[in-house]
């Protein structure tokens, strides 16, 4: 549904987005990760046709965003970064406006408003003016606007920003449900959201894609992925013996626990087998044992530069 080819956007000499290519199909939820200023919002603004690309192309549902903007925009529901809305309007008025602009008049408009009000839990503030709402409600009002025409493509720029943990949870579930029938792309810097809602994630840094895969694939890039953590009663020589295993790179002592790291990603399964064999051969009393899955935040930190580093 969304196809991005060699997309570049430069502001003066600086490339905010640099030769980015990816695509999102129906049924996919793509998490768009990256530090602040990495080019996430700029990319999304080009997808939605708000900013013209400097080079490269974006097509949505087969329509080029620059050449056939109206056809492409009709397919898209967009939640911009700061979730803007017209503060002097009521929630209902704002959503009715959005519906009318999407060609939903009369009864169809009323039904569309009722549907998104329900979906985004807005019924209690329906008649309130938007400037009197809390940030969470304002955010959901703008999200409701993006869903009003039941779009095939959803572009959500930080959809959970400023929400409380319960609201975050609801919105993530909403995104995951939407993803079954739509193509969804959303940006975030909350890594747990990737696990909660995404089928695939892209990490972007300084305008370039630095990682692209399923959450599990990304986690596997973590240093800790495949490491075996175990807790033993007694066995003072365990650390040395674990370190002597040919498939172990190093062994770490974490309080009462020991953690053995595999030599490389391919050695993970072998390491697990050898550790269990070793435990039974030595007759150690095993109290706990598990395989580490890898941590997204560690991967994220390793492949992106913090924005405190001068570029």
């Amino acid at each position: 549904m969304i196809r991005i080819e060699n997309l570049t956007k430069s502001f003066g000499a600086k490339n905010a987005v640099d030769n980015v290519s990816f695509s999102v199909e129906r049924g996919e939820v793509l998490g768009f990760l990256g530090p602040n200023g990495a080019g996430k919002s700029t990319t999304m603004r080009m997808i939605t046709g708000f900013l013209p690309p400097t080079a490269g192309s974006v097509s949505v549902g087969g329509f080029d965003v620059v050449e056939a903007p109206l056809e492409a925009k009709r397919l898209i529901g967009y939640l911009p970064e700061s979730a803007p809305s017209y503060p002097d309007m009521s929630v209902r008025g704002f959503l009715a406006f959005a519906a009318e602009m999407r060609g939903l008049h009369g009864d169809a408009g009323k039904r569309a408003v009722a549907r998104v009000v329900d979906l985004c839990f807005l019924s209690s503030v329906l008649h309130q003016s938007i400037d009197t709402l809390s940030k969470g409600y304002r955010h959901r009002t703008c999200l409701a606007q993006a869903l009003i025409h039941d779009p095939e493509v959803l572009v959500l720029d930080e959809p959970t920003d400023g929400l409380d943990p319960n609201q975050k949870h609801e919105v993530r579930n909403l995104i995951r449900d939407m993803g079954r029938s739509k193509a969804v792309i959303f940006s975030t810097h909350i890594l747990e959201e990737v696990d909660a809602a995404c089928t695939r994630a892209i990490i972007i840094d300084r305008g370039r894609i630095v990682a692209n895969g399923t959450p599990a694939e990304l986690r596997a890039k973590s240093e800790i992925a495949g490491a075996i953590t175990l807790q033993l009663a007694g066995a003072p020589d365990a650390a040395a013996k674990l370190a002597a295993l040919p498939c172990a790179r190093k062994v770490e002592t974490l309080g009462a626990q020991l953690r053995a790291y595999p030599k490389d990603a391919a050695a993970a399964a072998e390491l697990a087998r050898s550790v269990i064999e070793l435990v039974s051969r030595e007759g150690w009393k095993l109290e706990a044992l598990h395989t580490e899955e890898g941590q997204l935040d560690e991967v994220f930190r390793r492949i992106t530069l913090p924005d405190t580093v001068k570029r």
């Binding site: 603004r45 939605t48 046709g49 708000f50 903007p69 109206l70 056809e71 925009k73 009709r74 898209i76 967009y78 911009p80 970064e81 700061s82 803007p84 809305s85 017209y86 503060p87 602009m101 999407r102 703008c142 606007q145």
Partner: peptide
């Protein structure tokens, strides 16, 4: 200033 320009110009209108 309020960012609604982004909403307005990403609607399917000229």
């Amino acid at each position: 200033r309020s960012g609604t320009l982004e909403l307005l110009l990403t609607l399917p209108i000229s």
